[in-house]
Each structure stands twice: as structure tokens, then as C-alpha cells.
Amino acid sequence: MSKFKSFLIRTLQLALVLWAVVTILFLMFRLMPGNPLAAYIDPTFTAEQQEALIRQFGLDQPLWRQYFTYLANLLQGELGYSFRYRTPVADRIWLLLPNTLILTFSSLIVAYAFGILAGAWLAWRRGTRTEAAALPVVLATRAMPEFWLGMVLLAIFSFSLGWFPAGGTRSAGTSYDSLWALYTSSNFLSHLFLPMMTLAIYSQGLPLLLMRSNMLDVMKEDFITMAKIKGLSPFAVVIRHGARNALLPVMTSFAISVGYQLQGNVVVESVFSWPGLGRELVNAVAASDYPLAQGAFLMIAVVVIAMNLLADLLYSILDPRISHA
């Protein structure tokens, strides 16, 4: 019961955080210098037309009123109209969200699968030359700008070798009966490969280093000594007794990684012209399409906050010693 209660408190706290982020977002876009409709209003519009538009968007209202209208609209899932596309922002976001999620999750799954195995292996090879050589390389991958890694992969595997397409999600002029048919087509997958690898190479460092240090801790525990004394094979000791216990904290870090990855997506999607939320955010900001930029930002923030909550929850479930009381 107390665990449920502490989880409830945490959920309420994060709901407050979401409200605070929404408010910051509102202020950020309203208090910036310049007319928010500048990109929308054609210079040839007459003064009356301009005023009609300002009224239509509710920008003649006092700030507090705009704020409550904005909150009320958000609660109904109403994100406004994009200046550029002249379509509801929500439609645009639901259209792009799957692309971003596919890129995020595929790259993280690859990164975690590799990172966990390599981390366990490096812990096992502790003190050897392999370990001494591998660690700086892993740290260097964490020091790479993701977009630069994307550029290098693009130049080598797309422009020089021609193995993969240079951008987008599919070749021009192709169409598929269903989304499922699209996402499983070799056309889509070959477009996915390079951006996915870019993000995976960047992200594998965290699970790898976590797994390695957890393994080193776990291998000092009494039950490992016990397993060795029982005469179990090194494989059984390392994998069945060591790795399984070292894995828990790595898995909780997955949720946090999703949040970080969404932010990294912003640049990588731009490099690969991947039509996702991040690239949309950048383009909307550059084109002063405020409603769309606001919507994309909010969507990313919602996922980040939800993942923080999920990480807290996983943490307290997997490790009963932790509580948030």
C-alpha cells in the first residue's frame, strides 16, 4: 500500500511538472520579441485583414486569458493550426510520431543488446589489454556529436559506396497498402538503417558502461563466491548468476534513454531528412510556425516526463529497497 501511495505522489508531482513545462512553453512562445503572426501575415494584407487575423487567433486578448484558453484547448487535445501547412497541428504530429518512435526504439534496442553483451564481456576481461583499449573507444563514442557521426556514415555508406539511400523514409513514388506493409518493406528498412545505426552507436555507451560497472560489483558478492565454490562452470557463474543480477539497473536506464534519445533525434533526423518530430520541430522553429513548434515540443516533453515516471516505477518494482516516500 505504501509503495502504491508513494508512486501516486510521484505521479502527482510529475503531473505538476508537466503543467509547469506547459506554462514555460506558453511563456517562451508568447514573450519572445516579434509578432507571432509575422510568418503568417502576408505583407500585402490590409490593416483590417491583419487585425481580423489577430482577433481570429485570439492574440488581441490579455495574456492571462490567452493562457487559460491555451490550457483549456490542450486539455481537449487541441493544439491549434499550423501556420505553414494550414492543417491541425495534432494531425501533423500523429502523422510524424510513428517515424520518430520507430527510429528511437529500433536504435535503442540495438544499442542495449550490444551494450549489455559488450559490457558483461569487458567486465569479465577486466584488467586485460582488450579492456584498456576498448574503454577509451567507448568514451570517445559518447563524445561524438551525433549529427557528425550521421554525416560520416552518410558520406561513406550512401555517397561513396551507394549501399544505402541518403534520406527520407522511402523512395520517391513508392506507395504501400498499409502502414504495416510500409514499415516491413525493404525499402523502408534500408532508409532506416543509417539513422538507426547513428543513434545506436551513440547510445550503446551508457548500457555498456553501466553493465560493466554493475558486473564488477555483482561479481564481488557472496553468492558468486558460493556459485564458484559449488563448482559451476565460468559461463554459469558469469551469465546465470552474475549478468542476471547486474541487468536490472541497466533495464531501468532504458526508460531514461528513450527520453534522451528523443532529444538526440532532433539533429539526426535533420541530417537524414527523416520525417519525425525532431526535424519537424527544427523546421517549424526556423519557419516561425509557432503552433507547430509548440506542439512538437510538447509532445517530446510529454514522452520525456512519462519516461522519467516509468523509470521511477521500474526502479521501485525491481529493487524493493528503494522507495520514494
Partner: peptide, 23 residues
């Protein structure tokens, strides 16, 4: 600490992009 929670809830790169672009 609630302020820190808010800072953790803000997507870092998008936030810096928006501030840099609008200022």
C-alpha cells in the same frame, strides 16, 4: 527540488533550440 524536477522534464536540446532561435 520541484524546480529541479521541472528542469528534468524539459527536453534539453529542443529547449536550447527554441531559446537560441527566438532570441
Amino acid at each position: 527540488m520541484r524546480l529541479a524536477d521541472v528542469a528534468f522534464g524539459i527536453p534539453f536540446l529542443p529547449f536550447v533550440i527554441v531559446i537560441s532561435a527566438f532570441s
